[in-house]
């Protein structure tokens, strides 16, 4: 794979840009979303590690076989919990433009999504218990397609309220059945 990379790098430099040139959406998520992502990751790892640790303390003959994976998972979990959300925060962006809802996510698998206003059917705001603790909410914009939903999963509560209210007004005023 290494030499293929070198070859394409050379060719790519001569030919054309390698990244699709779409301007990034203007807004970042609310910075508290980092805390929410951390909490979710930490909980996810805790679900794996806690039983291992408890069993390891109870069953002495198998202790080494239970605590070692627990320790490994703990280290990996710690690193990911610290590093990933900061990373995610840098790559998630969103914007409500004049005519569309626009998001960009990912770096290794970068994805730009656009849902035109005139096609939006529903606007949902959800706040899970964990999200509530961090003061954030998810706004999901659904179109008539099963594949067309655009989610902005990390807005401050009042931003989410405002965005969803605005979008509801705009889509209500748009005629047609949006298919």
């Amino acid at each position: 794979m290494g030499e293929a990379r070198a070859a394409t790098d050379q060719a790519g430099a001569a030919r054309e840009p390698e990244v699709v040139n779409l301007r990034p959406p203007s807004n970042r998520y609310d910075s508290r979303v980092v805390g929410w992502w951390r909490a979710r990751l930490a909980l996810g790892f805790a679900v794996v590690i806690t039983p291992l640790v408890i069993l390891g303390l109870l069953i002495s003959p198998a202790r080494i076989w239970l605590l070692t994976p627990a320790a490994i998972a703990g280290v990996i979990g710690l690193v990911l919990t610290v590093a990933l959300p900061t990373w995610w925060y840098r790559v998630h962006r969103w914007e409500v433009t004049e005519r569309a809802v626009y998001t960009r996510t990912g770096y290794f698998w970068q994805s730009w999504r656009v849902a035109p206003m005139s096609r939006i059917q529903t606007v949902d705001t959800t706040r899970g218990p964990l999200q509530r603790a961090f003061g954030i909410a998810t706004v999901t914009v659904t179109t008539a397609s099963s594949a067309g939903a655009v989610a902005i999963a990390g807005l401050a509560h009042d931003d989410a309220e405002r965005v969803s209210h605005e979008l509801t007004l705009i889509t209500d005023a748009t005629p047609g059945d949006a298919t």
Binding site: T8, G12, E18, Q110, S111, W112, R113, S145, A147, G148
Partner: peptide, 15 residues
């Protein structure tokens, strides 16, 4: 009724 552009790191390296 909607658009998405996707580009993975592998696609990026191949243009």
């Amino acid at each position: 009724i909607g658009w998405q552009v996707r580009q993975s790191i592998f696609q990026r390296r191949l243009g």
